[in-house]
């Protein structure tokens, strides 16, 4: 069974030989950058560097997937945000949001020709060409909520859920189309799966806010993408209070952070969403030993995780040996 077949078998509810190890978010490490000569920040926006660094996940680490979108800033950059692309070991950040008002926004006609977007699509094509049907390719889009954070300002958006809720509905409705079209474009370029990054985190909004503002949007987006391919929903933090709502949104899988109990999450999802995760980044992957990684993998598998992965975008200084250990530990699990 190829890696790609293994991963897609899980999504399709078919038998598979070993528990897949995937990366819905960035797997880029400094070690991998040195090996591939594809470094941050260049690799955020250059298609060759993107593909090379993404390929390290397969060639160096043995993961069943590759994922070339390392940050969450490509759409924001293409839509007019001033972005600091960061350093070797620091992810990008938004310097200036255009403070989008609903009436001001028009999706640019040449959106897919804008540098960061085009680079990603080219990287996906290059990876498909290189790996054929061996490895699963995971694309990524930033959902309308996080995109609104970037374009309108996080604090502004959160305040407006209180003061001008109609405006928030308008903004999300506008930006939703960008995410849908970008996802379609990545599937067409060769992606097998899309990670949908939308940070409806409990530290910012309540579950009721998610239900009011985002759930209808996510349901609409998933209906639009249903025939295109599976979508993994990524949001950070504790999600137990909202996982039931996430399960109603139509995503095929959820990327679970390590603070959440896997068994409880699977119980709440009740077969409506697969779970991927939830190997802890700071304690286990960055600062832990191989033995710690092994135990973490065992715990996740015993909890019922269906696709193993780090819990979120990796800190760049994670040693590759710990990532190799995830794959090694996964391969020693009982075959399904």
């Amino acid at each position: 069974m190829t890696s790609r077949e293994r991963v897609l078998a899980v999504f399709n509810g078919k038998p598979y030989d070993k528990i897949p190890v995937i990366n819905p978010t960035s797997l880029a490490t400094v070690e991998s950058m040195r090996h591939t000569k594809a470094f941050f920040p260049h690799a955020h926006t250059d298609s060759h560097a993107m593909a090379a660094l993404a390929g390290a996940g397969r060639d160096l680490l043995g993961f069943d997937s590759v994922m070339p979108y390392f940050s969450i800033h490509l759409e924001a950059a293409a839509l007019g945000c001033e972005v600091d692309w960061g350093k070797l070991d620091r992810m990008p950040q938004i310097l200036k949001a255009p403070l989008l008002e609903p009436d001001d926004f028009v999706m640019p006609v040449n959106f897919f020709d804008r540098k960061p977007i085009k680079a990603l699509l080219q990287a996906i094509k290059a990876l498909r060409k290189k790996y054929g049907s061996e490895v699963a390719i995971i694309g990524k889009v930033v959902g309308p909520w996080t995109l609104a954070f970037h374009l309108h300002g996080t604090a502004n958006l959160i305040l407006e859920t209180n003061m001008e809720p109609y405006k928030v509905h308008q903004i999300l409705g506008m930006l939703m189309q960008t995410s849908i079209e970008f996802a379609h474009a990545q599937f067409e370029a060769g992606a097998d799966i899309i990670t949908w990054a939308d940070h409806a985190t409990a530290d910012l909004i309540s579950a009721k806010m998610y239900e009011e503002f985002l759930l209808p949007v996510h349901q609409q987006c998933n209906r639009a993408l249903q025939k295109a391919g599976p979508v993994i929903f990524h949001t950070c933090g504790l999600v137990t209070d909202r996982l039931e709502l996430f399960s109603q949104a139509g995503f095929e899988a959820f990327h679970l952070e390590s603070r959440n109990d896997v068994k409880a999450a699977i119980c709440i999802a009740d077969g409506r969403m697969l779970m991927t995760g939830n190997i802890n980044n700071p304690r286990i992957l960055l600062n832990g030993t191989a033995a710690d990684v092994y135990k973490a993998v065992n715990r996740a598998v015993e909890g019922g995780i269906q696709l193993l992965s780090p819990e979120c975008a990796l800190p760049c200084w994670v040693p590759n040996r710990n990532l190799l250990e995830i794959v090694h530990a996964a391969r020693t699990q009982q075959n399904k």
């Binding site: 604090a155 502004n156 305040l159 209180n162």
Partner: peptide, 17 residues
């Protein structure tokens, strides 16, 4: 609250809350 640069707005938000 996150800082929106206008504390007055946050007080109106508190009224709603």
């Amino acid at each position: 609250f996150l800082d929106v640069g206008n504390i007055g707005k946050l007080y109106y938000a508190l009224d709603n809350i």
